[in-house]
Amino acid sequence: MASSSTFKAPNGNNQASHVMNGGMNSGLTVNLHPLPILNISEHWNRARSSSDPRPKVLGALLGTQTGREVSVTNSFELVHLASPVSAGGPTDLTFLDQEFLSTRKEQFKQVFPTLDLVGWYTIGQEPSAHDMHVHKQLADTIETCVFLLFHPEIPPSSQSLPIKVYESAFTEDGRTEGGLVPLDYGVETGEAERIAVDGVARGTTDESLVVGNLITQRNAVKMLYDRIRVLVQYVSATVDKTIPVDHTILRQISAVLSSLPVMSTPEFTSELKTEHEDVQLTSYLTDVIRQLDALNEYAEKHHQVTRSTGEGLEGHGRTRGPMNDWAGRRW
């Protein structure tokens, strides 16, 4: 159990640590996926490049919870409002835009129906009073609210991730206290995530950033295509009875297909139809331009042959005229 300590707040005031030394955690296990970690890092890099000298970075964590195990697989940024309070308390407390949070949560739910809001993240060394204020706003609506603190100024020599994970402190009778307790966490990756992380780690030393991103996406799509082709070949061989039926593998394939999001809304259908028509129109225009170029080349060659034929007739003593031109063409 971490002990209480003090730290230097950004505004220069000493504040007591909000990490409880007498609290208890609920036995929660947290597994972090690479995507939210990369999202948080990218969010911080954009924030510190802005004109704001003290940018506030806040975001929501999406994932799944099975029993006392939480898997954090995605994230999105949060909109916040600063509101001054009366003298004697913290100033510029952060208030979340609840309407924006609800809208974004519903949007992600449509695309990723299995993911729920499991917590939030921010930037800092230790939890502050401002962080506790935000945590309470989310803990009121999330049964098990995970708080991830990202510390970007950790020394490069450190062998651990610059991340700390907390949850609300509990007493022995199960009641929550006004503080946080640290949680152990692990990093969990799937095959597709390992491919993406490997592409990011390679960097873009010889190409531009755009080219590097396109190459990474192409490699990921190619890998996905190869895996799908293997599944199609296996199912086809099973249908043709060239290989024995393995119901375990077939159930796994069915589970993968069932987890894919299905978009059947009119807006999605209309947008897909529009993009398909644009692609077809571009293909038709390419064919027309190619045919016009071939026709222009044919007309140029025909003109050269006609001109050389007329000059040959003049070399044989024929005079130019309408009849001679007709006779030349007949000849």
Rank of each mutant, 00 (worst) to 15 (best):
L180A: 02
E188M: 13
L149A: 01
V165P: 03
N324I: 04
P261V: 15
Q107R: 10
L96A: 03
L224F: 06
R329K: 07
D287T: 12
T122E: 01
D116W: 03
D293L: 14
E193S: 00
L78I: 04
P266Y: 02
F112M: 13
H80Q: 08
A16K: 06
N21K: 13
S49A: 15
N13A: 09
E77K: 14
R318N: 07
R175C: 10
R320N: 06
V118E: 02
Q65Y: 01
N296L: 12
D240A: 15
D206Q: 10
P155H: 02
M20S: 13
G12A: 00
T103W: 04
T114I: 04
N21T: 13
I40N: 00
M323N: 07
S264E: 06
A139M: 04
R202M: 09
V72K: 09
L35K: 15
I142L: 02
T176K: 14
H247P: 05
Y185W: 06
E193V: 01
D198E: 11
D246R: 14
K56G: 03
N213F: 11
V187Q: 14
P90Y: 08
H276V: 11
R290M: 07
I195G: 00
L28H: 07
V146T: 11
T141Y: 08
A60F: 07
T204L: 05
F7R: 00
L35P: 05
R218M: 08
A196H: 13
D226A: 14
A201G: 08
R227A: 15
G12E: 04
E69D: 03
D173H: 06
E153P: 07
Q110G: 03
K164P: 02
C145N: 04
A169S: 15
G124S: 09
G179N: 06
M20K: 05
A294H: 10
T306E: 11
S71L: 09
L78P: 04
T282G: 13
S71E: 08
S168V: 07
T216W: 05
L295Q: 09
K273L: 11
H303T: 11
L231I: 15
G179V: 07
G203A: 06
S17A: 09
R202S: 08
P244C: 13
N296W: 13
W44A: 00
L250T: 03
T103Q: 08
W44M: 02
P36R: 00
T319K: 15
E126K: 04
D92P: 00
P261T: 15
L101M: 09
R251N: 11
D325Y: 11
L101Q: 02
H18V: 01
H276Y: 11
P182E: 05
D116F: 05
K273F: 07
V235Y: 04
E193F: 02
N296E: 10
N39C: 03
A9T: 05
L28I: 14
P322G: 06
M1W: 04
I253W: 02
Q280C: 09
V30F: 15
M1Q: 11
E267N: 08
G190S: 09
T282M: 11
T73M: 09
D92R: 10
Q15R: 14
T306M: 12
V187F: 07
H43S: 05
T274N: 03
L35E: 09
W44D: 03
E172F: 14
P162R: 15
L281T: 15
P322E: 07
N324S: 14
R329C: 02
